[in-house]
Design a protein around this nucleic acid. Structure first.
Lengths: 347, 347
DNA sequence: GTGAAAGCGCTAACAT
DNA sequence: ATGTTAGCGCTTTCAC
């Protein structure tokens, strides 16, 4: 039992393919009776249109390709949820691919996705190698680079400056009186944005004549367990730190648990600072500092830009939307409470 | 500058469309020189094949449709990562949709995905309403219902019994000497699997002549913050519980943090039990009980089944793969020490 | 308001 | 080893 085609539905309803097509798409100029007859036939036959044919014929698709590096960190699913929600009601459909932080795999996934002729593509970060950039440019569709701003965008760009986030956090922590800093991170050669935060943090430390007293970076991906393990080791070696900066909140939470296990007072003795502003952080048994990255909002804004660009808005290309992360969890420090993101045009 | 078609590449290389097609797909019977000439032309022109045309013409796609209820709980992204990894190298591509725990939205998403003529579809749970089931059956492709086993499968089924997981946990906790139980959950009318766990848990309690001394169920989705809030309220009302069962580990972790804030000893005074075996649980400052659900493995197995079914394996339909969650975090209780989840077939 | 013809970009099947 | 013909299922365009 093969699936019914539009033609079969049309025959069943006693009309031509064309009329059936119009009726099912709710075109204005089809008589009410005809329309009802067609719809009845389609329903009875469990007709499901063939989008391959539709898109090939009409030369447009409702597909928005999205490539993220990972699904193991809640951050990216949240971005995807934002994109998906932002696309809701537009008739567009997001298609997700996972690159595993691998540039070659990312290139292949992008190539594969482009072959489906998406109407737009959203990728993570702006550090794609030249070959991938060329691929993206040749596609001739809106390209959105998401989550990061530190680099040269191809087309649209939505995100925050990770270098800036690191700088701001360092300033806040030094301002809070901390001087003996440690750094705990993971997979920095893959997670480039974490590296940019670290670099920004160090720039500010140096400007104060300070530096990381101790650093510990593992090859594995970030996790609470890893953060805990590295922190236990670091505090065994260098007990007199007064602040540890982590590559993200997962690692930082592990750091907090390590301190609790060692009986080290947080934040009195050691201040723990991460990045992301995960839900988790608000419920932890002790306060840790973090920069809140608006993950869902970035996804929603990206979806919004896609909708505008696809709708053909003139000013919907070559634009950059800047988010500013808000720092929380540092006693006495108050960062412009929940300031909304600003969108500024690029020169 | 429109995108080049196969025909244009063929002309450029001085051959026919067909030869170009064969050359690019690596068909055996194309002379080496011709192949190289075609590939060179395609590369130079940045040719990207049009999968719409390919799939329409060849009557097959490499798309595997996947529908999950949410992206806000790390559990589903982990399943997706498993599916994606399991599909790697097969040439198949997963396409994800999010239903937001809404059956109507799920139906629409499934309909939309089916219109792309996927070669298989994976959905979450087996509680789809009749209309959705009909849609799935009419698609005439392998259907995999994932994560749950408690119900009647349409075709393939991979998961664990949530009712059974609740029962096992209750038996383990009663066996550990607990008697005064509380229950803290959320969104049970949407998260049916959590409801099944609760029901299973209660069945066993009743068989021991026990019951939940107190229950607290919120409409909002599960989160650490919600688990903490509900637990604080419950312990204020009923301080003499000796165990609380939560709808999942997020809620349970919040419960632990609530206990810590109140100075209630965990697990000595109150035993906290959740579900999922999240990474987080292993790093928490106090042990909590949980049933480890093999999320990534379920995704990988589902992908495996899809590959077999699409490859046309005869025994690749109407099959059920059963996973057995392992209970951890109960002192003195050892559930087949880290035995790999068994996948066994059901008649 | 409805229909017929042409074609989207590719591959399957059959030439040669 | 290469080319030709005929679609795949739909929409676009133009006719009536």
């Amino acid at each position: 039992m093969r699936k019914p085609t539009l033609e079969e539905v049309a025959i069943e309803a006693g009309v031509s393919k064309m009329t059936a097509s119009r009726a099912l798409r709710g075109s204005a100029d089809v008589s009410k009776e005809t329309r009802e007859r067609v719809i009845e036939a389609a329903t009875r036959m469990s007709y499901v249109g063939n989008r391959l044919a539709l898109s090939l014929s009409s030369q447009r698709t409702n597909l928005v390709a999205v490539v993220v590096p990972s699904m193991s960190n809640i951050v990216f699913p949240e971005v995807l949820a934002g994109i998906s929600a932002g696309l809701d009601g537009s008739g567009m459909q997001a298609v997700f691919g996972i690159s595993d932080y691998d540039v070659a795999k990312e290139r292949d996934i992008i190539r594969d996705m482009l072959s489906w002729q998406p109407c737009a593509i959203i990728v993570t970060g702006l550090d794609q190698p030249e070959e991938t950039v060329k691929l993206l440019q040749h596609a001739n569709i809106p390209v959105i680079q998401l989550m990061d701003l530190d680099g040269t965008p191809i087309d649209l760009n939505v995100g925050l400056s990770h270098g800036g986030a690191g700088e701001d956090m360092a300033r806040a922590l030094v301002g809070a009186g901390r001087r003996r800093f440690g750094y705990v991170g993971s997979a920095l050669e893959k997670d480039l944005r974490a590296g940019k935060r670290k670099a920004g943090f160090e720039r500010v430390l140096h400007s104060y004549g300070l530096h990381f007293v101790n650093q510990s970076v593992d090859d594995a991906f970030s996790s609470i367990a890893l953060g805990k393990r590295l922190t236990l080791a670091m505090l065994a070696a260098v007990p007199d730190l007064d602040c540890i900066y982590y590559s993200n909140d997962d690692m930082a939470s592990g750091g907090l648990f390590a301190c609790m296990e060692l009986g080290v007072a947080v934040p009195e003795k050691i201040l723990i600072a991460g990045f992301n502003g995960l839900d988790l952080v608000n419920s932890l048994p002790a306060p840790i500092a973090t920069s809140r990255s608006p993950r869902r909002a970035m996804g929603e804004v990206a979806a919004q830009l896609v909708r505008q660009a696809v709708a053909g808005a003139q000013d919907a290309r070559q634009k950059t939307v800047v988010f500013k992360p808000v720092i929380t969890g540092i006693d006495g420090y108050d960062d412009a409470p929940d300031e909304p993101e600003t969108a500024r045009l690029r020169p």
